[in-house]
Every structure is written in structure tokens, then in C-alpha cells.
């Protein structure tokens, strides 16, 4: 299906470290927003790696900083500190000019497929634009690669080229957005709630498409969603965020069957299961809603809602520690035995 050659024409300065496996490496990412009423700690000390061809899921409730993390990685916002190393280059240390050269390596797709496409431009223009900005290659080449990208996402270039976004459905617009992100042959794709605005039946089409593209183009993906079933479906590993911090990160299966952080357990228990026989999990009820990131709680940010909280939780910040192979949790009182050790009813 992928007919676009994986030409991997990286910027010379990119010291591609293919051996280490990690294509994306985020370290100590910190994003704050100053407001009149105080400082929002949107992303605090977030660190993770994503290996080549791996999909990392980022989950959490609204306001937990999952989308802000992606935007900070893309440098769509200005993070206070941290590193975002893509193919060996720290994006946060680049000048705007250098950054423009690196941009094709990492691309982002947004939640609202219709709002993220300029309604006055034709589909062909929209998909071609990233190549035009880069300026490499001839116009004929650009056109050819754009058509290949459209074909790869299941659209007929001849049919859609001159049409405008409003003529398409949400699912088709999301395909156009994906074509636009893929036309420069990125290594890394950041997906921000890409199926949230779509109907279930269309959502499945787009998830399948992303899966095909991931395997045919060796994409490395960071996938943000509030829908845990969707994330579980696409991700190799999942990071759970709460109020700007990663509280747990583990391989998908491990996370779902042996959650260690009480928040993760609560989040998973809240998923409505379609199959009644699967609803055997113990009820883990958290009270209330996430507090405002304007003034996050001291210590573990989850402690005011946590049924297992003890004194230390309100004074000290737990750090991510390896609980099992590849399973990290930031908690003073983790669930040692996953669901088995869930003994909390209120």
C-alpha cells in the first residue's frame, strides 16, 4: 500500500542513533503557563523514551497534560526546561531555522479533523504545503509525493485534489490530515485524540489505517487519548498521567492486568465494559474530580483523592521506580499484586 519510498533523507546534522532503539527521548519536560491567577503546572518533569516502531499511549483525564506534552514536544509551545531528543537531536535546543529543517522528522495530527484543515485551500494544496515549506525537490516531485500520500490514506488523488475540506466527512478529513502529516516521510507521528471526534464505525477505519501505516512506514507513534480501550488497542506501552505528572508507565497488557498505581486502577475500573462477564473487577471508586493544575496538591498530586493515601503522600513527591520489568510507578503504596490487592471500596 505504501508506495512512497522511505527515502529517509534526514538533515545531515541529525546524528541518527539507530542502534540505541529510542527514536524519541523526552527528559524532564516542564511546561508552565503564567496566568493572572497563578501558574498552571501543565507538565511537570515528564520523561519517557519511544523505541523505533513502538507506539506509546498517553492516557489521563482532561487537564492532565497529555496534549500539552505533545505540543511541547513539537515546540508548538515553549517548554520551560527539559529535552526532546528526536533522532539524536534535541529539538528544544534548536534555533527556529534549524528546527524547520528537522520538522519533517516528527509530525502531529490533531483532534478536530475539520478545524485543523484550512477551509479555503484545496486538498491538494493542503497536502502539498509541508513539502513546499521545506522547499526541497521540484514541484512535479511534490505533486507526485502528495498524490502518493493521499493514495496511502485511501483517498483517490484525482478525485479529491481540487476539492475543499468542507466537502468531506470527519473521517475523510482525518485521512487528509494524516496524508498531510505523512507526506514528508516522518519517523515520528504524534497523535492527539485523533479518533475522539469520530463515530465508532469510522473510528475503527482510522485506527486500522494508522496501524497499516505504522507497519508499512516503520512509524514511531505517541498516541494520546482519553479512551483507554482505544489506547490499549494501539499501544505497546502506556503512560498514565495525572495533573501533569506520569504516575505509571508499563507495557499495555501489564498495565491493564496488574495496575500498580491506585489512580490507574480507578481509571481502568471506570471503563464501561461491553461484555458483562468482564465486569468482574473490584469497584475502585475515586471521589471527586482532578483538582486544578493551577495549585496542584503537594506531595503526590493524587493523594487527596487516593483511598490508600498515608501521611508521606502529602509531603513527599514519589518518583517513578521500576516495580517489575519495564513497569514503572510513582507511588509510596503501590498495589503489589494488581487487582488482587485492591481492597478499597470507598
Amino acid at each position: 500500500m505504501s508506495t512512497v519510498p522511505n527515502s529517509a533523507e534526514h538533515v545531515p546534522s541529525a546524528d541518527v542513533d539507530r542502534a540505541s532503539g529510542a527514536v524519541v527521548s523526552v527528559r524532564g519536560l516542564e511546561q508552565r503557563f503564567k496566568m493572572r491567577s497563578g501558574t498552571v503546572h501543565a507538565v511537570s518533569q515528564v520523561s519517557f523514551d519511544i523505541a523505533r516502531r513502538e507506539t506509546l499511549g498517553l492516557v489521563g483525564e482532561s487537564g492532565c497534560g497529555k496534549s500539552t506534552t505533545l505540543k511541547a514536544m513539537m515546540r508548538l509551545s515553549r517548554p520551560e526546561s527539559g529535552e526532546v531528543v528526536v533522532n539524536g537531536v534535541d529539538w528544544l535546543a534548536l534555533s527556529d531555522r534549524e528546527l524547520r529543517h528537522c520538522r519533517p522528522q516528527m509530525q502531529m495530527i490533531f483532534q478536530d479533523p475539520i478545524a485543523s484543515l484550512n477551509p479555503r485551500r484545496s486538498v491538494g494544496d493542503l497536502v502539498l504545503e509541508p513539502l513546499a515549506i521545506q522547499g526541497r525537490g521540484s514541484r512535479v516531485e511534490h505533486r507526485e509525493r502528495s498524490e502518493q500520500a493521499l493514495t496511502a490514506v485511501g483517498l483517490d488523488p484525482g478525485d479529491v485534489w481540487h476539492r475543499k475540506p468542507h466537502e468531506f466527512s470527519g473521517g475523510q478529513c482525518q485521512r487528509i490530515s494524516i496524508a498531510r502529516a505523512l507526506v514528508g516521510n516522518p519517523d515520528v507521528l504524534l497523535c492527539d485524540e485523533v479518533v475522539s471526534a469520530l463515530d465508532v464505525s469510522v473510528q475503527a477505519q482510522i485506527l486500522n489505517l494508522l496501524e497499516d501505516l505504522r507497519s508499512s512506514r516503520n512509524l514511531t507513534i505517541a498516541f494520546v487519548s482519553h479512551d483507554l480501550s482505544v489506547v490499549h488497542h494501539v499501544a505497546d506501552r502506556i503512560a498514565v498521567m495525572y495533573l501533569g505528572r506520569i504516575v505509571e508507565i508499563a507495557p499495555s497488557g501489564e498495565l491493564y492486568w496488574r495496575p500498580a498505581h491506585p489512580y490507574t486502577a480507578a481509571l481502568l475500573a471506570a471503563i464501561p465494559e461491553i461484555d458483562p462477564s468482564r465486569r468482574s473487577r473490584k469497584a475502585v471508586v475515586v471521589r471527586g474530580e482532578p483538582p486544578s493544575p493551577l495549585d496542584p496538591p503537594t506531595g503526590c498530586r493524587f493523594h487527596p483523592r487516593c483511598p490508600r493515601a498515608v501521611d508521606v503522600c502529602s509531603t513527599e513527591v514519589p518518583v517513578l521506580q521500576e516495580a517489575a520489568d519495564g513497569h514503572f510507578v510513582a507511588c509510596f503504596r503501590p498495589l503489589d499484586d494488581g487487582w488482587q490487592s485492591v481492597d478499597i471500596s470507598t
Binding site: S201, E211, H232, G253, I271
Partner: peptide, 25 residues
């Protein structure tokens, strides 16, 4: 049937394909 099958579940293996319905409503 198709609607129910197109919903991802926790039983799915990561990277597996979903039973999508062609077209849209």
C-alpha cells in the same frame, strides 16, 4: 453486530485490526 465489533476491547492484542464498517452513516 458490526457496531459492536468495531469497538476496541481490552481483549484485543495491541496492533490488531478492528472490524471496521465501510463507509459512514
Amino acid at each position: 453486530d458490526a457496531l459492536i465489533r468495531s469497538i476496541p476491547t481490552l481483549d484485543d492484542v495491541p496492533h490488531s485490526r478492528l472490524d471496521a464498517i465501510v463507509g459512514r452513516p
